[in-house]
Computed example of a mutant assay.
Amino acid sequence: MKNLPIGMIDSGVGGLTVLKEAMHHLPNESFYYVADTAHCPYGSKSTHDIKQYVWQMIQFLLNKKIKLLVLACNTASAIFLKDLEKELSIPVIGVIQPGSQKAVTVTQNERIAVIATEATIQNGEYERSIKQLNADIQFKGLSCPTFVQLVESERYLLPSAQAEVDEVLSPLKDFEMDTLVLGCTHYPLLRPQIEQSIAKDVQIVDAGVESVEIIIQTLLHNKISRDITSTHPEVKFFTTGEKHGFEAIGKRWLNRKQMQVEQIEPGQLEGFVWKKK
């Protein structure tokens, strides 16, 4: 059990921001990362469809044998985490609670904004999590429907990306927040543009990065940290869509010369149907 990999899933490349941090803090652990690029982005999709896509990726990973599952996707965490905690026999970690806890800890004026996908904002889990920790918090959620595609298409590397980010974030201008939560794991790739678009004294919380401490705590609590005397750890990548674009972004973001990427054929996911209420 200890030497099994940690499974991590996201709708696309965004979860690589979580993986990068996890690999840095847990260099002895193996990781299997699944990107559902065939169905990305999740933000505008129905709850039913998102659960089905995520369930298929989970079953794929369970068949590969993993010891812990990380939902490196805010949308999946908002919609599906509570169901999965009851359904799965291995620990499951989402990114919303860690991000909420950090934001409540660092805010000074009790005004917190969260930017995320439409599905995450509509679900309301961020607002519930934050206000459970501090009922006096003034909260504003803003959906940024174009941000995921901005990253997945690599348009975030173009100078024109700044104007697009400025326009999307303009509703936050009058909120007077002092803390902004990046409520989608794609958004850290846009961090330079986001920082330029908001007030300089606003603290940015990366929800995905904050989840890594929970991963570490969970490994220790369950006594499933990898045995460092075992074979060399491995990192494998799987994608449900075309793998070359994912591989290009992954190499650049993770600073890797090589990536072991396998494209999942649709037939490998057939028969995995989420039927729970």
Rank of each mutant, 00 (worst) to 15 (best):
V273T: 15
W274P: 04
V168Q: 14
L16P: 04
S77R: 06
H221E: 14
L190G: 13
T117H: 08
H186P: 02
K65N: 14
T185H: 07
I121G: 05
I228C: 04
K51W: 01
I6C: 03
P159K: 12
G208R: 10
S170H: 12
T120F: 09
T179M: 10
L169P: 05
I215G: 03
L158G: 00
A119K: 05
C144F: 08
Y156E: 08
G245F: 12
V209E: 14
D227C: 06
K86H: 11
A72D: 09
I115Y: 02
S89V: 08
S129P: 00
K243R: 13
M177S: 02
E118T: 15
A78N: 09
Q203S: 13
M57N: 15
N255T: 05
T231M: 00
D36S: 09
V273N: 12
K2D: 11
A119W: 05
M177L: 13
V148F: 10
E125M: 11
W253S: 02
S11V: 01
L157S: 01
V114L: 07
N63M: 10
V18K: 03
V13Q: 11
D166V: 02
I130T: 04
I198H: 05
E247P: 11
L4F: 08
V168I: 14
L71D: 04
P188N: 09
E247F: 02
L62R: 14
I66D: 01
L158Q: 14
S11N: 05
